[in-house]
């Protein structure tokens, strides 16, 4: 059985593919580099990639195993644990963050694909004592229960309202030629990538409607 040999090959192939596939180089971070440092205890074959992220306005340099998802880079390496891991498979939305202005599932993308990107996590949206209006609305409408999906819901809500303002249509947008409206129906559709097993949807929609400033 040569499983470990097989894996080290596939890992290098992955790294090569990743490096080639994410050619855009952002000024501040410099070129993505891939190296195989020596002397890491217990991991002679470990391969790391140097990347830089702009997280909540701060530049953060990271040396990462290229297999590290953006979510784990945030949670495990930068210790920004506000973003949650519910499934690690792009099935729940708990890991939603805003990258370059768009909401994404951070578990479904490798950190090395975001060298130089601007990432906004829940920590960058607001904090206790200085809540973002969306966070305050979630509190006053009780738009959560266990709280585990909540940072993802808040990030998704904030980015989702921007999408509507930018005129991005959704599955329920009836008139593709007119600007989409902030209706309860649009909100429900657009927030359906974020599961809340506690079932706070009715309150989440109320919170978002309040922040959007117009009734559904």
């Amino acid at each position: 059985m040569t499983a470990s040999g097989h894996h080290s090959i596939s890992r290098r192939a992955l790294v090569a593919g990743t490096a080639a596939g994410t050619a855009p180089i952002h000024g501040e971070a410099g070129a993505q580099s891939v190296s195989a440092p020596h002397g890491t205890p217990g991991s002679p074959e470990a391969t790391t990639a140097q990347i830089s992220l702009r997280v909540n306005g701060q530049s953060r340099n990271l040396a990462l195993d290229p297999r590290t998802t953006l979510l784990d880079a945030l949670r495990e390496h930068l210790r920004l644990t506000g973003s949650k891991k519910g499934c690690d498979h792009g099935q729940c939305g708990a890991c939603t963050v805003i990258v370059e202005g768009r909401r994404i599932y951070s578990c479904l993308t490798l950190a090395v694909m975001h060298d130089g990107d601007a990432v906004t996590t829940i920590e960058g949206i607001g904090r206790p004592g200085h809540l973002h209006p969306m966070q305050a609305a979630f509190v006053s409408h009780d738009g959560y229960q266990c709280g585990y999906c909540t940072p993802g819901q808040v990030c998704a809500s904030v980015a989702m309202l921007d999408e509507i303002r930018a005129g991005v249509p959704s599955h329920v947008t009836a008139d593709l030629m007119a600007p989409p409206q902030v209706t309860a129906e649009e909100i429900r559709e657009r927030m359906s990538g974020n599961i809340c097993r506690c079932g706070a949807y009715s309150n989440i929609v109320d919170a978002i409607v309040e922040v959007a400033g117009r009734p559904g």
């Binding site: 809540l131 709280g147 909540t150």
Partner: peptide, 21 residues
């Protein structure tokens, strides 16, 4: 009344098991 743990939950500062570095 609003939940007293609401600000922590909505800001991602309520600590869950796996993330207690």
């Amino acid at each position: 009344v609003d939940r007293i743990d609401g600000p922590r939950k909505t800001t991602g500062t309520a600590p869950y098991a796996y993330e207690r570095h």
